[in-house]
Computed example of a mutant assay.
Amino acid sequence: MTLRLAFVPGATPDKWARAWRDRSREPLELVPIEQDEQREVLLDGRADMVLARLPMDTEDLYCIPLYEELPVVVLSKEHAGAAYDELTTADLVDEQFALGVPEGVSSAVEQLPFPEMSVKDAVEVAASGTAVVVLPMSVARLYHRKDVASVVVTDLPTTRMALAWRKDADDDRTQAFVGIVRGRTSRSSRG
């Protein structure tokens, strides 16, 4: 039976997938999904487990926090902020935001009514110099272009990544994958 692991943009399941393939006879299928699907894929059975970006409704799910991601602002290489390694939310007060003003940022300018767009489109808008976009660092890396810079925003909260699966689907197979994610070797016990 195939173990299906879904993952959101920016998540990197490679090392765990390699370890699973080395230890298990069962195949592993990696299922790329959008962030707004991360709970739904578990509930509708398209995936057994998901590498998710929190927050997420975890009712009826087991959820193991894995690591945190730094927030970055993606802006045109021509933008004055591109010259810095770090910025604060105060440095972003006069910016237009392609995906809306992030929580924790106070904008002093009236925001342009951008149409709904994908993250890839928002990065393209940032490259044009029309607006900026705040993203988790891994997502900014995924959509990186030569004409943009990604600068850490030091006073925004980090994003937390987690492994989640349905409580009613907790079995030896999911626990074997949890063991891999937690760094247990093939010879270690579950304790």
Rank of each mutant, 00 (worst) to 15 (best):
G191C: 05
T130R: 15
L28M: 15
P136Y: 05
M56S: 05
G81Q: 03
S106R: 13
L54C: 07
E95F: 12
W20L: 06
V105G: 02
L28D: 08
E78Y: 13
T12G: 01
V74H: 03
P115T: 09
Y143M: 03
K167Y: 01
T88M: 02
D85Y: 03
L3P: 06
V125D: 04
R53F: 01
G179T: 07
S189R: 14
V93R: 15
S118R: 10
A164S: 15
P136V: 06
E37H: 14
S107N: 04
D121L: 08
L92A: 01
T12W: 01
H79W: 12
V139E: 14
L3T: 10
E68P: 02
R39A: 14
E116I: 07
A140H: 07
G81I: 02
V139S: 09
G129M: 12
A17S: 13
G179A: 14
E59I: 13
E34H: 07
T58G: 09
Y67H: 12
L61G: 05
H144P: 00
G179I: 09
L30K: 02
D91V: 01
G100L: 05
L3K: 04
V139W: 01
R25D: 11
E40G: 04
I180Y: 05
V178S: 02
A11E: 12
E26C: 02
H79R: 11
I64C: 02
T185P: 00
D60Y: 13
A122N: 09
T88S: 15
A52K: 07
L5F: 07
L112V: 11
T174G: 06
M1K: 12
T185Q: 09
D172V: 12
L156V: 05
S107V: 07
P55D: 08
E116F: 04
I180M: 05
K167N: 02
M1C: 06
S128Y: 09
E124A: 15
V74L: 03
V132G: 10
E95A: 11
A82R: 04
V50H: 06
R4L: 03
K120P: 00
T88N: 02
S189E: 10
P55R: 06
R173A: 10
G104P: 09
L66G: 09
T58Y: 03
D147A: 11
D168Q: 13
F114K: 03
V8L: 01
V93N: 07
A131E: 04
R184C: 03
R184N: 06
S76F: 06
D60E: 15
T12Q: 13
E29L: 14
E103Y: 02
E78L: 14
A149L: 03
D94A: 14
E110N: 05
A140T: 11
A6R: 11
E110M: 11
Q35N: 10
G81H: 08
L42H: 03
P115H: 08
P55Y: 07
E86Q: 15
K146V: 02
F114L: 01
L163R: 02
A127L: 04
G129E: 08
I180R: 09
D14P: 01
T89L: 00
E116K: 13
A164P: 11
S128L: 10
V72I: 11
A6K: 11
T88C: 02
P115E: 12
S188T: 14
L163V: 06
M49L: 15
T159L: 01
V109N: 00
A122T: 08
